[in-house]
Design a protein around this nucleic acid. Structure first.
Lengths: 228, 228
DNA sequence: TTAAAAATATGACAATTGTCAGGTTTCGGT
DNA sequence: ACCGAAACCTGACAATTGTCATATTTTTAA
């Protein structure tokens, strides 16, 4: 079993601010878990007794609205820590975390986290910085959703997928979302997403092959985002 | 000049986790300021070299969208600390803070804050908890804006104003927003807000007197929110 | 392999919301 | 008390987006 002290993933998140001894403690209590595409890591309302450190795969963090639709707030991959907000606020989970690519995660009991938080200011500040970034991102999402058209938001989503998850050797996006997930990211009806993606294909902005998507022209996408 | 150690406002925010000595230091470096309705405490893009502790009044925190409209992310009043996120992330301000009721604030240089953060874990955790709450709120706003109609969002905004700012002796909301600010809170055009408020008045859900608004029936508002 | 289920696609239409173009009322400063 | 500016209001219309119904394609599982 691998040890946190040697885990490369650690460099990408706030665990890097932990001391050798703290990491050893975490390593002794952590549990590796795997989740298959579609599995829930946790669901809205669950009481979490720890956080999940993503080693591989991708998860969508979403919340069910009263109208029965899911809104995806964030896509989390390698290095992200899930459930941190709920554990810190000592609240039940506000979001559900569902795997959209097979996942490999470490479960870390909340005691180690909370103890380190209360004794190691470096760690607390590191977590704080990360949450400050999340908060800024959330504010930006609010502005985008309320002030831009669905077409602009879908165009932005493609850029986001390219920037955050990259492309393979032949230019296909590494992360393909179903039309439904894409709709839940931008906050619209599935049919609207399908129509706009069809339009992008007709206009030579993107092309698809099976589930895979390739962006053909970033400039054209940016023209769409700017609103003509 | 009043001292932070004696300030009642402190009880409502993370400054309560500071030690006597830390508070004294803050008190020695702080500067009281007043802002009149319409004044900017800071603007998007400003480099902040401190935070603002609100002692009285109300501020809107908003961000300008590329289409030229403001989106109000949050309304901050007594006890709130403004600029904390930017100072912690060491970024320029992501939002503008404009007074919508004459304000009385204390400016606290960032050095005191950052120093305490790095040495007093209790303070860091307290700030973290507060930011966790802001993040949860932001996530909820995302879901509301993307999944509810303008009418539902305006109804919710009235409930929010009542719950967070209260009513006077005769039942008028303590905080009155202009139609434009209300539009920027819910993310819609001013005309749409005006139409819906007119409709609420006709249906006996609210009544107005000058700028003041009185909610006549919470149950009716809740019916609107539930979407019939 | 093949049948069923899920995802994608498209049309027709309705509902919601935005825009523009006028008005009227209210408010703050002289 | 008055004037000009800002806020508020309303109508007409257009644009965007959602809903429903129905194919078609792709994926999944027996």
């Amino acid at each position: 079993m691998s040890r946190c002290e040697n885990c490369i993933i650690r460099q990408f998140n706030s665990l890097r601010a932990m001391s050798k001894e703290e990491l050893k403690k975490v390593s002794d209590t952590k549990v590796s878990k795997t989740f298959k595409k579609g599995d829930a890591i946790f669901e809205e309302g669950d009481r979490l007794d720890g956080v999940f450190c993503v080693r591989d795969g991708v998860s969508k963090l979403s919340k069910l609205s009263s109208n029965g639709k899911d809104q995806i707030i964030k896509l989390a991959s390698k290095g992200e820590i899930l459930g941190q907000r709920s554990v810190i606020a000592e609240e039940s989970a506000n979001l559900s975390a569902i795997a959209i690519k097979d996942m490999d995660v470490c479960f870390i009991p909340k005691e180690s986290i909370l103890h380190t938080l209360n004794t190691n200011p470096n760690f607390a500040v590191e977590v704080l910085r990360h949450m400050a970034k999340d908060l800024r991102d959330a504010d930006d999402v609010i502005v985008n959703i309320s002030q831009k058209t669905v077409k602009q938001r879908i165009a932005e989503a493609f850029i986001y997928l390219k920037d955050n998850f990259g492309e393979d050797e032949v230019g296909f996006l590494n992360l393909s979302l179903s039309r439904e997930d894409m709709s839940n990211v931008v906050g619209t009806a599935t049919e609207s997403t399908i129509r706009i993606i069809s339009e992008f294909k007709k206009k030579g902005i993107i092309e698809t092959s099976g589930k895979k998507v390739r962006i053909l022209s970033i400039p054209k996408l940016e023209t769409v985002i700017s609103g003509l």
